[in-house]
Simulated scan of single mutants.
Amino acid sequence: MIALPRAAYIPFRRDTGYDPAVEMAAAFLERLGACAAAIVIVPQKGTLDYSGPLKQYARNRTVLTPRNSNQSPIGLGHPALVYAPALKELELATRYTRDSPIAVVEDQFFSCARWADEIGAVNLVELRIHSTERSAAHQRILERIDFAGDNGLADAPGKRDLIRHLGELAEIDALDKDEILAYQLIRGKYRYSEFLARLGEEIDGFQHRS
């Protein structure tokens, strides 16, 4: 038997909606033996009312949102079912799951495909394992952006370096905002959503000027 990755990705499908995706995510966590300890991560508590299977799955479980996570006594390292995340919820899920199983139900307005590529998730709709292939030059530039870290947004020399690295990505036709953010989220040192949001703004600004 082939071992499953610890991460699952259920891309949004307009023809089926969210409920079947939640059931697939729950089945994935069950198969890994992670269901009993799993938490639920959603944009806000009211999100539970939009899906019957999600509301049922969340019953008697810890439900985290970006707003209430700082008040939660739950420790890190829990499996998680993540529903309709944007960047804040993906960052929260990455922080709380660490190396534990995670299943992400994609929202129609925010693509998680690059996250799936970076973490090596199994796509439960397309039945394939996501992965990334990069040239050595591409990888080095992403590492340099990570190395620049917070200095890339906090001081003039650091911001200058960040802009140079974005230009280097553009030169090799690899300037992809979603990929840069996913790399930082999964492999980088600066993973907090505030930093990622600011980095995204810098990328948007660079693309607008180019």
Rank of each mutant, 00 (worst) to 15 (best):
L127E: 08
L127F: 07
L127S: 12
L127R: 12
R128P: 00
R128Y: 01
R128A: 01
I129K: 12
I129E: 12
I129R: 14
H130C: 12
H130G: 15
H130S: 15
H130A: 12
S131Y: 06
S131D: 12
T132C: 11
T132E: 15
E133K: 12
E133N: 13
E133V: 15
R134L: 10
R134I: 06
S135A: 05
S135E: 13
S135V: 01
S135Q: 05
S135L: 11
A136Q: 08
A136W: 03
A136F: 11
A136M: 04
A136R: 11
A136Y: 04
A137T: 15
A137I: 14
A137M: 10
H138K: 07
H138Q: 05
H138L: 05
H138M: 04
H138W: 07
H138Y: 07
H138P: 01
Q139E: 11
Q139V: 09
Q139W: 05
R140N: 10
R140A: 14
I141K: 00
I141Y: 02
I141F: 08
L142A: 04
L142P: 05
E143W: 05
E143P: 00
E143S: 14
E143H: 09
R144W: 02
R144M: 13
R144C: 03
I145A: 06
I145V: 09
D146S: 10
D146N: 14
D146K: 02
D146Y: 03
F147K: 10
F147L: 14
F147Y: 13
A148M: 06
A148H: 09
A148V: 12
G149T: 03
G149K: 00
G149D: 00
G149N: 01
G149V: 03
G149M: 01
N151L: 15
N151I: 07
N151R: 09
G152Q: 01
G152S: 11
L153S: 08
L153R: 04
L153C: 01
A154I: 07
A154R: 10
A154L: 13
A156S: 14
A156Q: 08
A156Y: 08
P157H: 07
P157W: 09
P157E: 13
P157S: 11
P157L: 10
G158D: 06
K159M: 14
K159Y: 10
R160E: 13
R160Q: 13
L162T: 00
L162P: 01
L162S: 03
I163W: 03
R164P: 02
R164Y: 11
R164A: 12
R164Q: 14
H165S: 08
H165F: 15
H165I: 01
H165N: 10
H165T: 00
H165M: 13
L166A: 02
L166M: 07
L166V: 02
G167Y: 01
G167K: 07
G167D: 09
E168G: 14
E168C: 06
L169F: 02
L169I: 08
L169M: 11
L169W: 02
L169H: 02
E171F: 04
E171H: 07
I172C: 05
I172D: 02
I172H: 04
I172K: 11
I172S: 03
D173P: 00
D173N: 09
D173V: 01
